[in-house]
Nucleic acid binder design. Sequence first.
DNA 1: CGTTCGGTTGAGCTTTGTCAAACCGCGTGG
DNA 2: CCACGCGGTTTGACAAAGCTCAACCGAACG
Lengths: 260, 260
Amino acid sequence: MSCLVSHFRRYIALSEREKELLQALEEDPRSYRRKATLRREGEPASTFFTVMSGWLYAYRDSSDGSRQVLDIYLPGQVAGLREVAYQQSLTTLCAVTDAVVCPFPKARLTELFDESRRLNDLFFLFLARENALLVERIVNLGQKSAPEKLAHFLVELQYRLSHLNSEDSDVIRLPISQEMIGDALGLSAVHVNRSLKTLQGLRLIEQHRSEVRILDAAGLTRLAAFNPSYLNEDHDWLRIDPVVPPGLNGNGAALRSSAL
Amino acid sequence: MSCLVSHFRRYIALSEREKELLQALEEDPRSYRRKATLRREGEPASTFFTVMSGWLYAYRDSSDGSRQVLDIYLPGQVAGLREVAYQQSLTTLCAVTDAVVCPFPKARLTELFDESRRLNDLFFLFLARENALLVERIVNLGQKSAPEKLAHFLVELQYRLSHLNSEDSDVIRLPISQEMIGDALGLSAVHVNRSLKTLQGLRLIEQHRSEVRILDAAGLTRLAAFNPSYLNEDHDWLRIDPVVPPGLNGNGAALRSSAL
DNA sequence: CGTTCGGTTGAGCTTTGTCAAACCGCGTGG
DNA sequence: CCACGCGGTTTGACAAAGCTCAACCGAACG
């Protein structure tokens, strides 16, 4: 089963046709090396990317040489979706690890949406979800001390990773440098390191090099004021009726059946 | 002409039918007093709000008593859209000034979308736009000094206001306290004040009480590293063919001319 | 007129950043 | 196999940015 389908199945039960449609998003897999750039800020943004394996991240360079990491994309996520509404890419998209991603032209998105309103809704939901994630980042950046920021970063990542693998390890092998964590949290790399030591001193984590073991998940969650509700969408909003079977004309979308 | 329609016309030329549909979003106007709360974080979020007049803002309370202002909504904007995908409100929505807003049940959104794919696309665009705005906030919060943050805040606000009124005054009458600006920028109220003085010292603005005059827009924009591209969407992405007239099947650009 | 809210300003303190040096692990080439 | 160098981590000393507390001011409003 495709990566995206297996990921989406968590959201809605898909019809066969919808599965086919989703496969289309994955028909053009490409491999990128660690640290390869998929596209740069300001470049034309005519595609978005489905992550099959590996991690991506989006960042923004500032004129003074600093940069802000905005998002990390894990397998099953769709990167670059916000650029559907922009001609130019707002951020640089880059591979954290070796990764396989499938570019998909945003122009074809409307076709897809015409065929399945439910997939349309689903993408709407993804955008709303990313929105919620960004809100959480803002709260994290604006209101928290360095150790709290870091705690939030770790807890969120662990939460997202565990939902990905459906296995809940308390060890996170971070493929990213402390400098990059700093760029995500608005901290210097040095201070990220010190904050790690602080969390260690609080017996919340154990950490050596790029490996973090969570000792006290509850305590870390409390310190981070982490509330995972922003990662749990309201699936009921999605239309639960499946795609209209052949021969019937669907409500609103006449002749939808023609493509089935 | 309705508020929303006049706002949306900037994005796409609307058919009569689409205008009618948009009117539906404004059929239930309600007045709120300055500082009134429209809905609180955690409460059920079954509606979103079209702003007719006045300003709204969304914020998030932290357990330690601080709060993060996430967004300011100006007339013609749609507030609470990200909650379409969540059962509970992720933020508290509140009136900055006396305001008139129209609640619209999110459940009826699918009806609307079924009737017009273009409106569906438009809302998709709004969500992407809000996404881009949040990205900009993150960069602002993560990478900039206090005066730079403030400069960005002012320039963005002025840009959005001028596009709203189609008149470009260099004076901003801020209906918000310095404390609230601080809550938006992750600064203390005191430091907001000092940063205002700093900008004044640089002869970029003149400020007294809650009134700001922009003396050197170019300089302020430079300091803020403000690039308005995130406020200028790609309208071409939207389907330009109008709603399908009754009796016809609407794939592609057939009959595009009818409504334009 | 008095109260209240927000703006302004100063003094001292805390958090975080900067710079610099040492360190560690790993891959590479001799 | 070993030496070297590179990328990343760790630690210390010091500097800068921003916060807190506290006092005062001025306008708006009952």
